[in-house]
């Protein structure tokens, strides 16, 4: 606590939070208009996105400036660390919702649909098996015919992707060791490798999606399997994208000479985030692709 003879850094008034919220209001309401086919939606989204980009650039730029200007001591640093841990915990809870949905559909909803007495159900030929796209039927007045699809195998691209992410977890740790012993070259090479592995993962994932949509008949609309598969891997992919962007920023800052061996919260925060994304992937690999 405040045993340091130091005043906690309280930043000056800042316009960024308000602009960010305005941007988010424009983006969300624009998105709603867009999916409900009202014309100005796209433009509102675009304007909102520009606001968000401006804030990301300005706000993070401001923080980097403050950090390099020496505004943050150990005391502020501890705030950022606790904050990042809590933030990642909330992300865990977000993924838990989708894993929970997967569990519920596989172990409760589908067995129950298949267990009804044949005299009382319209799902006569439906059996309890996974992967499943459901028994079919009428959805909101439209007929839903069970699509023919091939489930995603774990031992192709997904296995390669697992190796890629595990390796990237190692390279980012190696980069951290470099930073700790002031070996800038090791830091930069390690980060560069991590970014490259992240991008490789995303490319393979995009290829896999393309393959699923065009050749395997597996889409977001493929019942329980398609919904859980694409939402879980999709949100994970989105987090990998964010993580890669964050790593690129950290790489560029390292190349500019930022961070010292005892003052580099941004690096560690991003590394924690990257490890979190890694762990989620391992769960995905086992629960979505493999079992």
């Amino acid at each position: 606590m405040a045993t340091e003879a130091h005043h906690y850094y309280v930043p000056n008034p800042s316009p960024y939070p308000f602009i960010l919220s305005t941007g988010l209001l424009l983006m969300t309401s624009g998105f709603i208009f867009n999916i409900n086919h009202y014309a100005p939606g796209v433009w509102m989204m675009l304007l909102g996105f520009l606001c968000v980009l401006y804030v990301l650039y300005g706000w993070f730029g401001r923080i980097i400036g403050e950090s390099e200007g020496g505004a943050y001591s150990k005391w502020e640093d501890r705030s950022f660390r606790i904050g990042m841990i809590v933030f990642i915990s909330s992300e865990v809870a977000f993924f838990a919702a989708f894993f929970g949905a997967l569990f519920f559909m596989r172990r409760i909803a589908i067995p129950e649909l298949a267990s009804f007495d044949h005299d009382f159900t319209m799902y006569k030929s439906f059996t309890d098996a996974w992967p499943s796209a459901g028994p079919g039927g009428v959805v909101l007045g439209h007929a839903y015919e069970v699509p023919k699809f091939t489930p995603m195998s774990a031992w192709g691209i997904p296995a390669i992707n697992t190796l890629i992410l595990l390796t990237s977890g190692a390279t980012v740790t190696w980069a951290h060791w470099g930073l700790l012993k002031n070996n800038r070259q090791q830091l930069i090479i390690g980060l560069f490798l991590t970014v490259a592995l992240g991008i490789a993962f995303l490319c393979l994932q995009a290829f896999e999606y393309h393959h699923a949509y065009t050749e395997m008949g597996l889409t977001l609309g493929t019942g329980a399997y398609g919904a859980t598969f694409f939402m879980l891997t999709g949100f994970h992919g989105f987090h990998v994208t964010l993580g890669t962007i964050m790593l690129i920023v950290i790489l560029m800052r390292s190349m500019k000479g930022h961070f010292t061996s005892d003052h580099h919260f941004a690096f560690e925060g991003v590394a924690w985030y990257w490890h979190f994304v890694d762990v989620v992937w391992l769960l995905l690999f086992v629960l979505v692709y493999w079992l």
């Binding site: 519920f104 459901g134 028994p135 977001l220 019942g223 329980a224 694409f230």
Partner: peptide
């Protein structure tokens, strides 16, 4: 976007 989380026809469940 065509998912079936809460729809029995696709193997989902409103109770979820």
């Amino acid at each position: 976007f065509g998912t079936h989380f809460f729809d029995a026809a696709g193997g989902g469940d409103p109770i979820l």
